[in-house]
Design a protein around this nucleic acid. Structure first.
Length: 262
DNA sequence: ATGGTTGCCGTGCAA
């Protein structure tokens, strides 16, 4: 299974780019975030030929996640978090029992202080709820995959400058601690760092606000693919498809690709 | 220290 996660930043605007993605790297399963469309308006017609199986949870203008697949699923779901119905989680189960969870974690605003920034407080609460959820079902036999835009770049080489980003939301110690607690709660394995060493800079997002994203390369690794230990031996490869960041009218995120024997 | 860009919607807000 070739699994791809991509913050597409409007699935209606960029449905043509999904076609190009399929032409170039042929995902079997594509997990999207920031679809920015309510379910009634999801562009099923444009995507049905590429992905006959689709599960979308969206809302108007903001957030929204979707799982598109060539492989059938046997169940679909998705929870609400922090008491809000803001379409940040979708899940499916494949034959054989492998669960896939697609998340869009709140970005958290600009000010990294939960006392004065409600959006940052929401982000921390969201991560705490995810950790409780993940830990409650932890089981060494379980075959689960967690992907998405987690809006945190945890390691020094997940950002262009560790020192300069320590007080920038997405790389502050308080968020990184929360993400590590989530990861520890089910012994989640980072499928991308499983193949690409920690010593290597690796990013999946580059701001629109730079003249030449590749030349300045001020990126962050915000998009992640994790698997439970029972799936570690099934991992076959991982990469960031940064070519897509150069496409016409690109998303500011690049697709993250993981190959798994399932 | 500042501003830089994008999408959706409606001319502001979130990223």
């Amino acid at each position: 299974m070739r699994l791809v996660t991509w913050n597409i930043n409007s699935v209606r605007l960029r449905a043509p780019l999904v076609h190009r993605l399929v032409d170039e790297i042929a995902p079997d399963v594509l997990c999207l975030q920031e679809t920015k469309v309510m379910d009634e308006l999801f562009p099923h017609d444009e995507l049905a030929e590429l992905f006959p199986h689709r599960h979308a949870r969206g809302m108007k203008a903001y957030n929204g996640v979707a799982i598109l697949s060539r492989i059938p699923f046997t169940a679909t779901g998705g929870d609400d978090w922090c008491g809000r119905s803001d379409a940040r989680h979708a899940s499916v189960t494949f034959e054989g029992g492998v669960e896939l969870h697609d998340f869009y974690v709140p970005a958290g605003g600009d000010e990294p202080d939960p006392e004065i920034n409600d959006k940052f407080a929401h982000k921390l609460r969201f991560l705490d709820e995810m950790t409780a959820w993940s830990g409650a079902q932890a089981n060494p036999e379980a075959k689960r995959i967690l992907v998405g835009d987690l809006n945190i770049a945890p390691a020094e080489n997940d950002v262009w400058s560790h020192k300069q980003l320590l007080k920038i939301v997405s790389h502050t110690p308080v968020e990184v601690d929360r993400l590590q607690a989530l990861q520890a709660s089910h012994d989640w394995v980072d499928a991308v760092r499983h193949f690409i060493p920690d010593s290597e800079k690796l990013f999946s997002w580059w701001s629109y606000r730079s003249r030449d994203w590749r030349e300045s390369n001020r990126g962050r690794r915000l998009d992640h693919v994790w698997v439970t230990p029972a799936l570690t031996k099934s991992l076959k490869g991982a990469s960031v498809f940064d070519d897509a960041r150069d496409w016409t009218k690109p998303s500011d995120h690049a697709p993250v690709v993981v190959d798994i024997d399932i």
